[in-house]
Design a protein around this nucleic acid. Sequence first.
DNA 1: AAGTGGTCTAGACCACTAA
DNA 2: TAGTGGTCTAGACCACTTC
Lengths: 255, 255
Amino acid sequence: MSKVEIGRQTPEQNTRSLGFRPLYAQVKHQLLERLINKIWMPGDALPSEQHLAVELGVSQGTVRKALDELTDENIVVRRQGRGTFVAEHTQERALFQYFMLSPDQGKKDDNHFPQSQLLSLDSGSATHRERAALDLAANEQVWRMERNRTLQSAPLIAEKIVLPQLLFDGLDKIKPLPSNIYALFDQIFGQSIVRAEEKLKAVAAEEGTAKRLGCATGTPLLRIDRIAYALSGRPVEWRISYCLTDNFHYVSNLK
Amino acid sequence: MSKVEIGRQTPEQNTRSLGFRPLYAQVKHQLLERLINKIWMPGDALPSEQHLAVELGVSQGTVRKALDELTDENIVVRRQGRGTFVAEHTQERALFQYFMLSPDQGKKDDNHFPQSQLLSLDSGSATHRERAALDLAANEQVWRMERNRTLQSAPLIAEKIVLPQLLFDGLDKIKPLPSNIYALFDQIFGQSIVRAEEKLKAVAAEEGTAKRLGCATGTPLLRIDRIAYALSGRPVEWRISYCLTDNFHYVSNLK
DNA sequence: AAGTGGTCTAGACCACTAA
DNA sequence: TAGTGGTCTAGACCACTTC
């Protein structure tokens, strides 16, 4: 590992405070870059705070503040007495960070991780909407995946997933596709999802969707439009889910 | 202001680490208590970090960590060079923390704060559901408010709000009720809302709701079931909103 | 110029884990 | 027992606001 130059700004450089960036932000940027470049992979332990401090030429407290922010962003996980680790896409994380549907009665638990049935997986040129959603170049190819998701064999979700083909080369070779595909993104394609934006609407079930969910045409469905972002900040997944919310609800915490 | 005792734990007290509580957590608890007891009101400046440190007998860094957590929880607002202030329920906060509907086209701004028309305000004994939602004692009274909300005169939301009457004595005397009622809660009733939990479903519009929203019976609506909590941790508002999501969507950030 | 929050350091010690 | 993250301190200085 080569020594890295992180410089404290002198007051002269900083007079008038144009573009002042605290040291810990530079440290955080360094660490993020290494994570993006896969110097450390999901599940790996990072060097200790002390080691990083010496290597980067800053105090432990400054490294600490950088790691604290990465922890808040679910990029890194800290365990007292053990170390700091690159966050993994465990089933628990999928359930509590990326699956906000919860049963009306009872608590959410591992029994509430939905099974998936793959209906189709094709590729083609990105439409205008797909290009806009995933920030793609003209004529770029995408994967399009359709799947149904069930909970204890009751249909719950019909969804379509769109992915840039360049980032997920060989996706069609992987069989079977797991239900928790973000773990796959991590492990096979090196794309770590770290956050997502969802837009929700209530819509009437169209005929095809109704059939997939075993409900009547026109049934009110919760439509979830998700864009998921990788560590690099790039949008790498566009997903639209139609959910039956007779016995489930979507949870949102305002704070 | 009387001197307060905050003790650092000796290792002896703490051996086996039963109930270990860091100093900053005790400081935070102290500050929270004063906020609940209205020693400092919304908009007030808190004493400086240095003053609090001396008063509580801890270092500035420890006070800082406590204030940082209160900042993360939107209980307090810090402004460099000016001071630390008790958070207020401004219209901006209402719009970005407590109103997650956004127009499909264009950006959310001050023009997207909905007007409210009060339809009714009555009181009565809490039903079972109301008691459960608001954690009320048997036979406790509640206010029930119905209102419609419009955006640029287009109907958007039909909602019912339930409040414990004991906490909102004299609510019926206030005319007109503002659209941003959390500001009212703060200023008149001393109930500062600091967080809320929302449960979302897609449902078909019933006849009465459809009339209020000017849509057909059976139209898919986004039903938002909210419980809002005050500084003390108490649930103080139960709200059910039925939203037309033809041109709007509910935003949720997963992180 | 004075006062506030924000950053950074160096060092001590505690809590926790694993060997 | 050694190594890690977590807490706490005292002090210095910077960035920002107000007077």
